[in-house]
């Protein structure tokens, strides 16, 4: 008995729709992607639980900021008005980068009227110089 051979069917998967989906996904990613890394400064603010969170004495360098004035003193008794540029110079002269952790502390007192931009400029400056910002909590 002779066997009839089946004709071989040619199977083809339509990948056209597949590519459409892929390109829709690409458009989604192009729209949601942001390549630009944000600018800023990582700041060292002692954590509540750390031993760095201690009472600071009057020998700790302090920065006192109001809406219009900026005071700096290496001790509490030597506070004087200073410009932002001069503060930068003084902090770099103190060589905080190479100092011990406890000697890098800068007490920052900020008045209520100080805008975030002013605070940002001063905190990023202190951090850039290697300082650790101590937040003053009023008792």
């Amino acid at each position: 008995m002779s066997r009839k051979r089946r004709a071989k069917a040619e199977a083809e998967i339509d990948v056209g729709a597949f590519a459409d989906i892929a390109f829709l996904l690409i458009i989604f990613f192009i729209l949601t992607t942001s390549f630009v890394r944000p600018l800023g400064q990582e700041v060292s603010i002692p954590q509540t639980e750390t031993p760095e969170n201690r009472e600071v004495d009057d020998q700790t360098p302090s920065v006192n900021v109001t809406g219009t004035t900026l005071l700096f003193g290496e001790t509490e008794d030597s506070m004087e008005e200073i410009t932002l540029e001069a503060l930068r110079d003084r902090l770099f002269q103190m060589n905080l980068m190479n100092a011990e952790d406890q000697d890098r502390m800068i007490v920052l007192e900020v008045a209520d009227e100080v805008t975030y931009e002013r605070y940002f400029r001063i905190v990023t400056l202190i951090s850039d110089a290697g300082g650790v910002v101590a937040i003053v909590e009023e008792n």
Binding site: P38, L39, G40, E117, F120, T124, L125, S127
Partner: peptide
Amino acid sequence: ALGADVGEL
């Protein structure tokens, strides 16, 4: 905020 001491984060 604007500042002079900023870098890539």
